[in-house]
């Protein structure tokens, strides 16, 4: 495996072939914001927040760094006026769904996003898919999945599997950037199966 040398924010960075721009940047201590990325999972490219400006053979384009593979001579800029603008828009759109999510509030402050730019439609889920992918890839239980399409898309537990697996696991809870996942779990639990005895869900961190 030959190492690849690229330039991120004016810094020479070496990365293994096949690594993504995000990996390379993180290795070099350069921060790129993400919402749907998690080290243990396959890259998803869902939130688009890790968008960076990439320049290769004189051509500038905007790519999602969590999926874009490194290449020799690539010049990456993680902050530019246009990148910031793209990220600001993404944050503003997500905030129409989850206006109070702590991660989004912090990002909005950093990028000067206006949380009231778009009309609110609080579904409290930003469809990052972290819970669903964690359950499928790491736990291999598939207790939760997406249902619906377009504006009706939402996460939903499979009651039969959730009743067996979820009370002892709940490892997806801390991954969720909003609190919607826990709300969805409490709902399915109260509707379809009994919670673990003497352990109210509200007490969970």
């Amino acid at each position: 495996m030959t190492d690849i040398v690229l330039n991120i924010d004016g810094k020479e960075v070496t990365a293994a072939a096949g690594a993504t721009v995000l990996d390379a940047a993180r290795q070099a201590g350069i921060h790129i914001p993400t919402l749907c990325h998690f080290e243990k999972l396959e890259a998803y490219g869902g939130c688009r927040l890790c968008m960076v400006e990439s320049e290769s053979r004189g051509k500038t384009s905007y790519v999602v760094s969590c999926l874009y593979p490194v290449e020799n001579g690539l010049v990456v800029r993680t902050r530019s006026a246009k990148v910031d603008k793209i990220r600001r828009l993404i944050i503003e759109e997500l905030m129409a769904h989850a206006p109070e999510a702590p991660e989004l509030v912090a990002l909005a402050r950093e990028y000067g996003a206006d949380k009231d730019r778009f009309e609110k439609e609080p579904i409290y889920c930003i469809l990052c898919g972290l819970c669903e992918r964690y359950c499928a890839e790491v736990k291999q239980k598939n207790a939760i999945g997406f249902v619906g399409n377009g504006p009706e898309r939402e996460i939903s537990f499979v009651p039969e599997i959730a009743a067996k697996e979820c009370n002892d696991c709940k490892e997806c809870f801390p991954l969720c950037p909003t609190s919607y996942l826990q709300a969805a779990f409490v709902l399915v639990e109260s509707l379809t199966f009994a919670p673990a005895a003497a352990e109210p869900v509200a007490a969970q961190g």
Partner: peptide, 13 residues
């Protein structure tokens, strides 16, 4: 295939 995927596909199309 996981049941969750079947449900996802059925509700998608």
């Amino acid at each position: 295939v996981p049941f969750s995927l079947v449900r996802q596909i059925v509700s998608f199309y």
